[in-house]
Simulated assay, not measured.
Amino acid sequence: MANRSRLLGVDLGGTKIEAALLDLQGAVTHRARCKTPRENYAETLSAICELCEQLESSANLTERLPLGICTPGSPSPDTGLMRNCNSTSLNGHTLCNDLEEICARPVRMANDADCMTLSEASDGAGTEEQVVFGVILGTGVGGGAAINRSLLHGPNAISGEWGHNPMPLARVNELPESLQYPRLCYCGREDCIETWLSGPGLALTHEQLHREPIVVEQLSKGTPNNRHRETLALYNDLLSTALAGIVNVLDPDLVVFGGGLSNIPFIYTEVPRLLASKVFSDVCRTKLKPAKHGDSSGVRGAAWLWGNA
């Protein structure tokens, strides 16, 4: 590393932008945030630059640090234009190049699931593991893979996007008759894993099973009633079925979970048992853990994009 004592990361979210400085052991030394400018690309670039300069000034740094940034969506490997961003003002722009120009510093970029994975592999739940697969279970379902604390990149820039694989057909065909399928995914396909394992997917499953709405956060707090248990049992079975495909292909040492649904305790007691019966092995030694750094994983992972530079 080129004589740097800090790593600089930014988490660009739909409602807020968070920036942080990390020391080389992963401790956050300085942090700042602001609201994300609403549907204004130029103001978003300016806000990111201002946060970076604010942190460097607070830390009495005399030179600009390279920037790692965590984004929704990702740049196309063909055009470099941002795609699939729920912050729609980013779509169609060369965000990485534009930031390098306006902030006058080198920039590395990864999506939120990749940054969570890198954070946890670098100094979180997966510090001691060689192969880590990160899973986001929230409004959507995302993922990323890190090997020896380095993100796995591919030619299509979609490594880890297991949420848009189809839920295995044999399992879907065994679902209770009360569940309506196929489920249409926003990507245009049917029965993507995301349509079953995301927060909205889980809520829809419960509503169709029991003809009652549910607030998903209820499942991570308190003692679930019998209806909740039935929904969770089905969810855990679907989750283990989908994860078995990942384990069969990647054989990770650890699967680490982030996102709102990662707080459901039954995931860590029931899914390992179910997973062992679904993988192509007589034993499943892959560990399942929640993210150590929680909501801070995005900005931390962004900073760690420069951790080996």
Rank of each mutant, 00 (worst) to 15 (best):
L179C: 07
L261Q: 02
G144E: 03
A303C: 01
F280S: 09
P224V: 00
P77H: 06
H153F: 06
V141K: 03
V135T: 00
E53D: 14
I158V: 10
N173S: 10
L275E: 08
C192N: 09
Y268N: 02
T223H: 11
R183L: 01
V283A: 13
F133E: 09
Y41C: 05
N86F: 09
V247L: 01
L204E: 12
P176D: 07
S5T: 11
V247N: 02
Y268V: 05
K35R: 15
P168G: 04
N173D: 15
V279Y: 10
L61S: 04
S57I: 10
N156F: 15
L250R: 05
N84P: 06
C187Y: 11
S297P: 01
N84V: 07
W306Y: 10
N308H: 15
S277Y: 09
S57T: 15
E120F: 01
N148C: 10
L95C: 01
V256C: 01
W196K: 05
E101Y: 14
H293T: 01
T15H: 07
L243F: 13
V299C: 00
S150K: 13
L219N: 07
S178F: 08
L99N: 07
V172H: 14
P213H: 09
V10A: 00
C115T: 00
T88G: 06
S296T: 09
A110Q: 08
C34D: 13
R4V: 15
W162L: 08
C284I: 05
R229Y: 12
C49D: 14
T71I: 09
L81V: 08
L305D: 00
D114I: 00
L45E: 07
K278I: 07
E43N: 13
D114H: 08
